[in-house]
C-alpha cells in the first residue's frame, strides 16, 4: 500500500518569467502514483508553461522539480526518462508511417533494440492504432494523429504521463474515445492533464487544480470539491415569491440570486443550513414552496468565480485608474 502513495511529481516553488512577465509564480504541488490530475485554467493562464517546465522543455527561473525521485535540473536524463509528454500539437513527423515513428520514439527513449517492436505493439494496441501501423501519419485524421501522439508518450511505459489539452480540435466521438483512453492510462500511469473544458476534468480526473495568471488558486479532489459545492447552496421555487430581503435575513444565508426564471439559489454558510427554517417560514407565510433541492453549483461556476471575480479585483488600482483617466480624457476630447 505504501507504494501506492509514492510521490511521483514534486514541484516546489517553481516560477518562470519571460523578461518582466511572470508566467508562473511560485507554484507548488505534488502528485502521487495512480492519480489523474486535472489542470484547469483559462487560456494563457500558464497551463502549457507549467507542463513545459515539468517536462524539461523550459527551464524554471526558480524552484525545484523532482520526477520519480530524480531532480529534473541535476539529473535530467533520468527524470525525463520517467515522463511521457504529449504537447498541445502532437509532435509527429507527417512523412513517416506510424510504425517508423513509434520505433524512432522508442529508440529515443532508450528502449533496447530487441524490445522496441514489442513496446511499439503494446502502445499501439493501447491507443487503438493496430490497424494503421503502415499508414503515413500525415494521411491520418486529427483524432488518429492525437492517438499517435499519445502512443508516443507511453511507449516507454513512463510512470508519469503529461498531456496538454489532449482533446482540442477533436470531434465529440473522438473526444469520448480519447477520454476513455486517458482513463485507461490512469490505471497504469499517473496522468497530468491540462484543459479548459470543465466537464472533461469532472469525468476523467481524481484531483483538480485551477491555475490563473500564473498562480495556483485551487487544489482539491473532485469528490471533495463537489461535496463542498453541493452543501453550500440550495435552489428553491415558490408560487408566491417573498421579498428577497426576508430570505436574506434568514440566519446563515449569505445571498440570494436567481438561478433561472422562477428558481432562486440561496447561498449559505456550510455550517448553518437554513433549509428547516425556510420550510417553516414558507408554511407559516403561505409562500407555497414548490421545489427544493441541493444546489449543485457546477464546476463551471466555481471556475468562473475563481478566475474572474477575485482576481480581476486584485488588479492594481493604478491600472484601473489609468483606464478611467483615459476614458475621461476621451470624453474631454469629445467635448472640445
Amino acid at each position: 500500500m505504501d507504494m501506492d502513495n509514492e510521490i511521483l511529481v514534486d514541484v516546489k516553488e517553481v516560477s518562470r518569467y519571460y523578461g518582466q512577465l511572470a508566467a508562473l509564480e511560485s507554484i507548488s504541488f505534488t502528485m502521487r502514483k495512480g492519480e489523474v490530475l486535472g489542470f484547469l485554467g483559462p487560456n494563457g493562464a500558464g497551463k502549457t508553461t507549467t507542463m513545459q517546465v515539468i517536462t524539461g522543455n523550459l527551464a524554471p527561473t526558480a524552484g525545484a522539480i523532482t520526477i520519480a525521485g530524480h531532480d529534473l535540473l541535476e539529473d535530467p536524463r533520468a527524470a525525463k526518462g520517467a515522463i511521457g509528454y504529449l504537447p498541445e500539437q502532437p509532435p509527429v513527423y507527417k512523412e513517416l508511417t506510424v510504425d517508423e515513428y513509434l520505433d524512432y520514439c522508442a529508440a529515443l527513449n532508450c528502449i533496447d533494440r530487441d524490445k522496441r517492436t514489442s513496446a511499439r505493439n503494446a502502445s499501439k494496441e493501447k491507443c487503438g492504432l493496430t490497424e494503421v501501423g503502415r499508414r503515413l501519419i500525415g494521411n491520418l485524421s486529427k483524432g488518429f494523429q492525437q492517438r499517435v501522439g499519445l502512443a508516443q508518450a507511453i511507449i516507454h511505459m513512463p510512470p508519469v504521463v503529461i498531456l496538454d489539452e489532449p482533446t482540442v480540435g477533436l470531434d465529440p466521438i473522438q473526444i469520448r474515445e480519447i477520454r476513455k483512453l486517458i482513463r485507461e492510462l490512469g490505471k497504469d500511469h499517473s496522468v497530468i492533464l491540462s484543459t479548459h473544458i470543465l466537464p472533461e476534468v469532472q469525468t476523467i480526473c481524481d484531483r483538480v487544480q485551477i491555475i490563473n495568471k500564473g498562480q495556483l488558486i485551487l487544489s482539491d479532489t473532485i469528490d471533495g470539491l463537489q461535496k463542498q459545492l453541493k452543501s453550500a447552496s440550495i435552489t428553491v421555487a415558490f408560487l408566491n415569491m417573498p421579498h428577497l430581503d426576508i430570505l436574506n435575513d434568514i440566519p446563515g444565508v449569505n445571498g440570494v440570486e436567481e438561478a433561472s426564471p422562477g428558481y432562486w439559489r440561496i447561498l449559505f454558510k456550510p455550517e448553518q443550513d437554513p433549509t428547516d427554517t425556510l420550510v417553516k417560514l414558507s408554511v407559516e407565510n403561505k409562500w407555497a414552496l414548490r421545489e427544493l433541492r441541493p444546489g449543485r453549483v457546477s464546476l463551471e461556476e466555481v471556475f468562473l468565480q475563481l478566475t474572474t471575480s477575485e482576481h480581476t479585483e486584485t488588479k492594481t488600482d493604478k491600472e484601473i485608474k489609468t483606464k478611467k483617466e483615459t476614458k475621461t480624457e476621451i470624453a474631454a476630447g469629445k467635448d472640445n
Binding site: T55, R77, K80, P91, Y93, K94, L108, Q152
Partner: peptide, 14 residues
Amino acid sequence: RNKTLSLLLSAPLT
C-alpha cells in the same frame, strides 16, 4: 515550426 522539437527536448537526451 511543426512543433516536433519537443519530442527531442522531452526525450532523455542532451
